[in-house]
């Protein structure tokens, strides 16, 4: 047992080192000043409190999204609709929080709640298709999400656009989460993210619903035979998965952006999948995995500001991480 976890750990280290190596190679290929670029990518996030706070701050939606994927994966489901769920959940949070602005900070809570519900319903739709007609959730989550991305785009750019700004965005919230590491963008959201990790960890490992969730993921025929309702379990998993994505979007708004800006969530959904995989389906692993992603993303952003590199190299690094993290060979989990 022990040797296997050591091997798994070795695998993770190998995956991370390989990804970093690819990043280094890319920097040398694509940058005029590769050393400066690499310095910015790797050390930039730690060079001052501002960058460091921003790095931690960008972990927040990734943690929520990663948890969302994890709940679905542990039930044997795939949620490829994270992008749309985060985006629509974020917009719903913004609109509701704007509506309830007179209530002060309560408006944030109501907004997040509605964001959770809206995103849960979006992924729940794929859940209904799956449960009623056995439609592959892999494809429907993606398609439903694609539809909602366009609808959200439309809502942000037309009916709810704030005429007073040049950005394509809604009006700004007056009440947002408190920042904790000025002048960086970091907010108290990070605490809520960590609490979410603890709750989901408890939910999956110690609750009856979590047990059903896991057992259906291990072997759904066995779960059904043992008296677990697969349809109910699937529905709950899809709702929770979507809801967590909604919170990812919602926290990005009430923490960082302050208003729903067009395409603010770009890439968060795909990153969530990678994070959940690096975390090896363990909720507690989401935190370090999200940190790793936040670090590379923030580093690339810093590098982009100071050198001539495009932030798209993170796409390549992320895809390499995705490739490597599902490797049974590297993680040593045979069979």
């Amino acid at each position: 047992m022990k040797s296997k976890s050591v091997q798994t750990l070795k695998g993770i280290i190998l995956i991370i080192s390989l990804s970093l190596l690819i990043l280094i190679i890319l920097a040398f290929l694509l940058s005029n000043e590769p050393l400066k670029t690499l310095n910015a990518i790797f050390l930039g996030p730690f060079s001052n409190l501002y960058f460091f706070g921003n790095t931690i701050n960008s972990m927040i939606p990734l943690i929520f999204g990663g948890l969302g994927i994890l709940v679905a994966l542990r039930c044997g489901l795939m949620n490829l609709g994270g992008e749309g769920q985060i985006y629509a959940g974020g917009l719903a949070t913004t609109l509701v929080a704007l509506k309830f602005m007179p209530l002060g900070y309560i408006s944030i809570v109501i907004g997040l709640l509605v964001g959770f519900i809206v995103a849960a319903l979006i992924s729940g739709l794929s859940g209904v298709f799956k449960v009623k007609w056995n439609t592959s959730e892999l494809i429907t989550t993606y398609l439903v999400s694609a539809v909602f991305i366009f609808i959200t785009n439309y809502l942000i750019s037309s009916p709810f656009k704030d005429p007073q700004t040049n950005l394509i965005a809604t009006r700004k919230l007056q009440y947002m989460l408190h920042t904790i590491l000025n002048p960086s963008l970091l907010t108290t959201g990070i605490f809520y993210a960590i609490i979410a990790v603890i709750i989901i960890n408890h939910y999956l490992n110690n609750s009856r619903l979590g047990y059903a969730n896991r057992l259906v993921g291990y072997n759904k025929e066995f779960a059904r035979y043992g008296g677990i309702s697969i349809n109910k379990t699937y529905m709950i998993a899809m709702l929770v998965s979507g809801g967590l994505h909604g919170l990812a979007g919602g926290f990005a708004i009430v923490g960082t952006y302050g208003s729903a800006i067009k395409s603010f969530s770009g890439g968060m959904g795909w990153n969530s999948i990678a994070i959940s995989l690096i975390a090896l389906n363990n909720p507690l692993g989401i935190i370090p995995a999200a940190f790793f992603f936040a670090w590379i993303n923030q580093g690339t952003l810093i590098a982009m500001q100071s050198t001539n590199i495009t932030s798209d190299i993170t796409l390549i690094v992320q895809s390499c991480i995705l490739f490597l993290t599902t490797s049974v060979v590297l993680l040593g989990d045979n069979k």
């Binding site: 896991r214 057992l215 072997n219 066995f222 779960a223 035979y225 043992g226 069979k335």
Partner: peptide, 20 residues
């Protein structure tokens, strides 16, 4: 296929009828 879940633990397999 029906009688057990290979990736779950022995205890998880045994308790399925007594989830309380």
């Amino acid at each position: 296929q029906y009688g057990s879940a290979a990736n779950a633990t022995l205890a998880e397999n045994l308790i399925i009828n007594h989830r309380d």
